[in-house]
Simulated assay, not measured.
Amino acid sequence: MRHLGLPVGSLLLFLSLWQVVAAAGTWSETLVPPPAKVWDAFVEVSTTHDGVRGYNGTTLIEHLGISLRRIALGAGIGIGAGVLFGLVMGTVGWVRSLFEPWITFLRTLPPLAYFSLLVIWLGIDESPKVTLLAVAAFPPVAVSATTAVTAVPKHLVEAARALGASRRDVVRDVVVPSALPETLTGVRLAVGVAYSSLVAAELVNGLPGIGGMVKDAANYNNTPVVLVGIIAIGVSGLLIDGLLLRLERAAVPWRGRA
């Protein structure tokens, strides 16, 4: 009950404070709409209302689904490349020395810094959006996988070699299981970074898409729809992070117990 009651209580407290601030009239409803208006906007963009289907002809769940598909493809590519690259950098010293500064450089760049360049190179269709999400997701996984591989206990590697294991056997049976917990943490971080880059990825030709919906609504000062989009991104992000956390617990049940 405590695990359920605290989140519900904090949500009710937040909604109450939001209503109080909106009712106080310190800011106009354009800036701080009351929760009821945000709920009305949620209903409007989720259904067909007065002959208008959702927002810009697409319902909220469809906007969200298109964005999730972009994240799945882009983050999937970035995570897969990051895991492989981290494994190589963690096991081959000269590769790490060569590429680690470039990955650090890439990790410090905000998505908007190179999105315009991707648009110039790749156009305004799906390619720059997916590429941006892949580039955003790659560094956290590569760094975490590299750190995890280099932190594998040396005595385990030496014991495996003493028992006749080949280099491939050592990587498969010792390095990968030992590095898996830290790598999965990097995957969760990468998905979070991809989510935080979503609106940037959909700045150009982002409709349909939840980030594009947020940007388009902001252009017209449609704050309720902006808040609906932000809440949808946050809630879906929480659900996906919860699924990844369950996957982590299933894949590495020994974490925190040994």
Rank of each mutant, 00 (worst) to 15 (best):
S197H: 06
L203I: 13
L207R: 09
G192H: 14
A200R: 00
E202F: 03
M213G: 00
V214Y: 02
G211A: 09
G211F: 11
L198D: 06
D216H: 07
S196P: 02
V204M: 10
D216V: 06
A194F: 12
M213L: 15
G186M: 02
L198W: 03
G209Q: 03
V204Y: 06
G186A: 07
V214L: 15
A194H: 10
S197K: 05
N205W: 04
L203T: 11
L203V: 07
A190V: 13
A200S: 13
P208A: 09
N205H: 05
V193A: 15
S196N: 13
V204P: 04
A194I: 12
S197W: 03
L203K: 14
A194S: 15
V193E: 08
N205E: 10
L198F: 05
L184G: 11
A201Q: 08
V204K: 04
T185S: 15
P208K: 01
L184H: 13
K215G: 00
I210R: 09
G206A: 05
E202R: 03
K215V: 15
N205M: 00
V193R: 15
R188D: 09
S197A: 15
V193T: 14
V199N: 07
N205D: 09
Y195N: 02
V214N: 01
A194D: 12
Y195S: 04
A194P: 11
V191L: 14
R188P: 08
V199Q: 04
G209W: 06
L203D: 00
Y195E: 06
G186K: 15
L198P: 10
L189Y: 13
E202M: 07
N205L: 00
G209K: 04
G206P: 08
V199S: 04
Y195F: 15
V204I: 14
A194V: 13
V204F: 07
D216L: 08
M213P: 06
I210L: 06
D216C: 03
L184E: 13
G212Q: 03
P208H: 03
A200Q: 05
E202W: 07
V199W: 05
L207H: 01
K215W: 14
G186S: 08
G212P: 02
L189K: 02
V214E: 07
K215P: 00
V199I: 14
A201S: 15
R188A: 12
L203W: 13
Y195D: 01
I210Q: 01
L203G: 12
G206Q: 09
G211R: 00
G212R: 01
G209Y: 06
I210W: 08
L184I: 10
A201R: 00
A201T: 09
G211H: 00
A200F: 01
E202K: 04
P208T: 09
R188I: 10
S196H: 11
V191Q: 03
R188Q: 15
L189A: 14
